[in-house]
Nucleic acid binder design. Structure first.
Length: 476
RNA sequence: UCCUGAGUAGCUCAAUGGCAGAGCAUUCGGCUGUUAACCGAAGGGUUGUAGGUUCGAGUCCUACCUCAGGAGCCA
């Protein structure tokens, strides 16, 4: 056995039972090896002792399993080494897999041999305890916190959400086109941007959305999406905000607002379905009630091909006016403290109330144009409204998707840019898209972290990304 | 930026203005089925910082620092 600086402890393995004959596997796949000898490569997660019987718990990145080490049945060095081994020391362990009803996972490992790869020194014990800890302490030790079963499960679900999101577009005729991270100006002219020097050309900014560039690639390729990090220097300190977050943004030519809402519905349905298919055990570890996710996709047709027909789950759709009426009613019944003023955007408590009325994500469309971005197409039936949609996640997780049909008329877009006091020169390329073969088109952006927080049922988006960047933290 | 709250042992938290404490973690000892095991013992403190009130301040007052939750803004 090749070790870095450890030693193989078994002194005289029985013929045919040496460590080398054990098959290397993972804890996640341990159920396929019942009554077989296996080798696991991982870390010591916890250790309980009861006299001459040790109960180490091993983890290997795919799960945890308890080992059983009776003093009388293993070589002396194996027992003594493990008895005093420090938590999170790395090791390989060989043993026999046994199904056991007393084990939470259903399986235990009868340890036969052990090799320590690196022993955590007693002077610097592993700082993350199994007991409760505070947010600041955990975030200061985020590089270690992610080793815990719950955090690992969240990161696995995040990976599946990201894969499912890209997979949906990849299988529906979309081409992934990556917009630049460094941009010369604000896309929307509103959010606070991270600024940096850019050689002799002055300032550059970290992107807050790739949308305008996606409109350009959509005109080239028809259906496109981008998937990458975005940055906002807003001084927001809430459970829904990060300064660096990941966004997936589709943009589609010849698509109107209704088509966009249908796309968003099919897209979210696909993501939730995938997570339920692959991560029910992880969701249990995280503590999420899966029946709430099953309710989201209830009634949806099975996997659609290409055009997404009939694959929607029937997400409720509310116009801004309908949502406003709902909020007024809620205020009169004493369910909301503040009264919503017609024409204003919805606040967080408003969004929470609206989403709490439904088991599925809610699509609120046609907001007053005044509170929305300059590039949104006015509703021809009521030009004071914008052809836009916000998708509000259930259980108060807030807006996870924001999208709209875009202005496709050159003159109107130019007036909008001027009215918003945006630098006309910087938008010449964007105006070109309306000068050379403009067509109706729509797109949306979904924040991955809010989606993960919703699907996993987390208190805060900081747990949805390996290393969260927030207003007060950029370490580790 | 504003509002609210919290800073005490490595961690989580107690302590009426009157001796600085517990659980966990660490170290030592005990226990052959433990499930964040349990039992016994030991070590571990400039109570966020700087002032002030008081015979006496972890506790009251002022300023600052750090963190958390919320608002606004947003995904």
């Amino acid at each position: 056995m090749a070790n870095v600086n450890g030693t193989t402890l078994s002194s005289s393995p029985a013929p045919g039972a040496s460590a080398s004959s054990a098959r290397t596997t993972t804890i996640a796949a341990i159920g396929q090896h019942v009554d077989q000898r296996v080798m696991l490569r991982g870390w010591l997660y916890n250790l309980r002792a009861s006299g001459k019987l040790l109960f180490p718990i091993f983890r290997d990145g795919t799960g945890t399993i308890q080992g059983i080490v009776p003093k009388a049945e293993v070589p002396e060095p194996v027992f003594e080494t493990l008895k005093s081994l420090t938590l999170e020391s790395s090791l390989t362990v060989t043993g026999r897999v046994r199904a056991d009803h007393r084990a939470p996972s259903g399986f235990e490992l009868d340890v036969e041999d052990l090799s320590v790869i690196q022993r955590v020194p007693e002077e610097t014990p592993y700082p993350i305890q199994l007991k409760e800890a505070g947010v600041d302490f955990l975030m200061e030790h985020r590089h270690l916190w992610i080793r815990t079963p719950r955090q690992s499960a969240i990161l696995r679900v995040r990976a599946t959400i990201m894969r499912a999101a890209a997979e949906y577009f990849d299988t529906h005729g979309f081409t992934r086109t990556d917009p630049p991270i460094l941009t010369p100006n604000a896309c929307e002219g509103t959010s606070e941007l991270f600024e940096m020097d850019y050689f002799d050309d002055g300032k550059a900014y970290l992107t807050q959305s790739g949308q305008l560039y996606m409109e350009a690639t959509a005109m080239a390729l028809g259906r496109v999406y981008s998937f990458g990090p975005t940055f906002r220097a807003e001084k927001s300190k809430t459970r829904r905000h990060l300064t660096e977050f990941w966004m997936i943004e589709p943009e589609v030519t010849y698509m109107d607002l209704d088509g966009l809402m249908h796309l968003a519905e099919c897209f979210l349905t696909h993501i939730v379905r995938r997570v339920l298919e692959l991560h029910t055990p992880d969701l249990k570890t995280i503590g999420k009630d899966v029946t709430k996710l099953e309710a989201v996709i209830a009634g949806a047709a099975t996997e659609d091909k290409g055009e997404c027909k009939g694959a929607g789950s029937g997400f409720p759709r509310l116009s801004y006016d309908q949502a406003h009426a709902m909020l007024i009613d809620a205020h009169q019944r004493g369910l909301l403290e503040t009264v919503h003023r017609y024409g204003d955007d919805f606040g967080s408590p408003d969004e929470t109330y609206i989403s709490s009325q439904f088991a599925k994500p809610v699509m609120v469309h046609r907001y007053p144009a005044e509170v929305k971005a300059f590039y949104m197409q006015p509703d021809p039936l009521d030009p004071s409204k914008a052809l836009c949609v916000d998708v509000l996640a259930p259980e108060g997780y807030g807006e996870i998707i924001g999208g709209s049909q875009r202005v496709d008329d050159y003159d109107l877009l130019e007036r909008r840019i001027r009215a918003h006091n945006l630098p006309m020169a910087a938008f010449q390329w964007y105006l070109d898209l309306r000068r050379y073969g403009s067509v109706p088109h729509s797109g949306f952006g979904m924040g991955i972290e809010r989606c993960v927080a919703w699907i996993c049922g987390l208190e805060h988006v900081r747990e949805t990304i390996p290393f969260a960047r927030t207003l007060n933290r950029i370490y580790p």
